[in-house]
Each structure stands twice: as C-alpha cells, then as structure tokens.
C-alpha cells in the first residue's frame, strides 16, 4: 500500500517534470546553436534586443530608486493603520492579468484616458512610445522588487538600527552603512526577479505600447510577430529569453545574503524569501 502510494507520487513528479522541461528543451532541439546566433544577428532580433534591454534598464533604475526608500519606510513602520492595505495594493499587479494592466494603463495615460487631457495640454503623448513600454514594465515588474525589498528590510534586526542611532548616526548614514549592506542580497534577488518578469512582459506592452519594430517591439513581442514570418528567428529569441530567465533564477538562488550565524543552513528560508511580506 505504502509502496503503491510512493510510486504514484514518483509518477506525478516525473509527469510534472517532463511537462515543464520538455517544451524548454524542444526550443533548443529545433534550432542548432550556430543557427540561433546567426538568427539573433538579424535585423528584427537585434532591434528587439536593443529595445528590451534599454526599456528594462530604464524601468529597473526607476523601480530601484523609488522602490527602495518606499520599502524601507514600510519595513520600518510595521504597525501604522492601513499598512496592510498599502502593501496589498502594491502587490495587486502581481496577480493582475497583464492584458488588464495594459488596458488600465491605456485608460489612465491614453489620449482619452483619465490623465489624457492634462498630458495632451503638456504636449505629451505616451501610448505606443518607448515611455509606454517602460511604464508597462514598471507596472508589472515593480511589485516583485518592492515585495522582496520589504521582506529584506524587515529581516534587518531593528536593534542594529537603534544601535547606529545611539552611536550618533543620522538616519541616512544608518541606512547606507548598516541597513543597505545587510539587505543587499535580498534587494539584488528582488531586482533579478523584477528583471526576469520585465524581460518577459508581453500583454500590457502590446496593448499600451503596441509592437513597433525598433521602438516598442520587445523580445517577446518580436517572437509573436516573427512566428509567422520566420519561425527560426522566433525560436532563437525564445532560446535567448530562456537563457536569461535561467541565469536570473540561478542568480537569485546563489546570491549571498548576510548570514549572522555561519553554522546555519545555507538553504534557510531567509536567504530566498519570496513569500508575501506580511505586517508583523
């Protein structure tokens, strides 16, 4: 009886593994590595690589610059009224379908949208520009960084912050010299997750920014548009995105987070906290 159940479990695991891994492997079996490289050198792919890298880097800089102080504020004040609501609102885009995010951005920043009139008066038109791509990425990927950053900051012992203050350190110095170094591993992990999500962003970008080659056509959008024209190009881009995603996942798992107890297990949950941060 027990052996039978174990066998069923093993079968389920094999099935899951095969189903999840086989399509990934298939991409690389379909096109030889040499052909992949030459396809990536083609015009459509190169343009998409440039667009994707540039928009993601700009988006990530904004995510980190705005998200880091915001997360520190939320981590430091764990009991203010409405905190749970604020954190939940920040996490909402994580579970929102990307198409909804795209249409929501459109009705906010589009010509006839909520802020469309004001933006038009300023002579600014956002939809179907590179700015729209950046905004779509920030909207869907930002919460990944925020959530991880809040968790990482919460893991910093408040005693150390107090100690720094009694030693005469102003809040900025405390943050820079004590909090940031201790949370850095977690922050980097959060950034890697945000970058991986941003590189894969498709739905919101398509609706809000369109798919103009060289302007708003990112790598996932290029896969979609090349699929009917040249399957090998689409597969090559797919392979590239798989490699990037795998590298990010590996980086997140290997990031050395500060470990006060050298004897504790290196795979402890604190190193790689992805659970939603909850107010304590």
């Amino acid at each position: 009886m027990r052996h039978g159940f174990t066998a069923i479990q093993a079968l389920a695991l094999s099935l899951a593994l095969a189903f999840l891994v086989l399509p990934v492997v298939a991409v690389f079996l379909q096109v030889s590595p040499a052909a992949m490289f030459s396809q990536l050198g083609g015009e459509a792919a190169t343009k998409a690589i440039v667009v994707s890298l540039r928009t993601n880097l700009i988006a990530d800089v904004i995510i980190i610059v705005v998200g880091t102080p915001a997360a520190w504020l939320l981590a430091r004040h764990r009991t203010f009224p409405g905190r749970r609501l604020v954190v939940t609102l920040l996490e909402l885009p994580l579970v929102l379908p990307p198409a909804v995010a795209g249409i929501a951005l459109l009705v906010t920043f589009g010509r006839t949208g909520l802020l469309g009139g004001q933006l038009e008066a300023l002579g600014v038109s956002i939809p179907f520009t590179e700015v729209a791509v950046v905004m779509a990425i920030i909207f869907v990927a930002g919460p990944f960084y925020l959530r991880q950053a809040i968790t990482s900051f919460e893991a910093v012992d408040p005693r150390l912050v107090q100690a720094a203050a009694t030693l005469g350190a102003r809040p900025w110095r405390t943050f820079r010299a004590v909090v940031l170094p201790l949370a850095l591993g977690g922050l980097a992990g959060g950034w890697a997750l945000a970058f991986a999500r941003g590189m894969g962003e498709f739905g919101a970008t398509l609706i809000f920014a369109g798919s103009l080659p060289g302007v708003t056509q990112t790598l996932p959008l290029a896969i979609y548009s090349e699929m009917n024209r040249n399957l090998d190009t689409a597969l090559a881009i797919g392979g590239l995105l798989i490699v990037i995603a795998a590298a990010m996942l590996l980086a997140v798992k290997m990031i050395p987070s500060w470990n006060p107890d050298p004897n504790s297990s290196p795979t402890s949950a604190r190193r790689f906290a992805t659970s939603p941060s909850t107010p304590r």
Binding site: R159, L160, A165, T166, L167, P260
Partner: peptide, 17 residues
C-alpha cells in the same frame, strides 16, 4: 538618539554583523 551623547551597550550587544 543620534543627538544625545550616550553610549549604550545593548544586552545582546547589537554589533553590526
């Protein structure tokens, strides 16, 4: 705290790890 001239030795020392 940073404007009080105080040296506090915490019970658990609170050294920066």
């Amino acid at each position: 705290p940073e404007r009080r001239s105080v040296g506090l030795v915490f019970q658990d020392y609170a050294l920066f790890p």
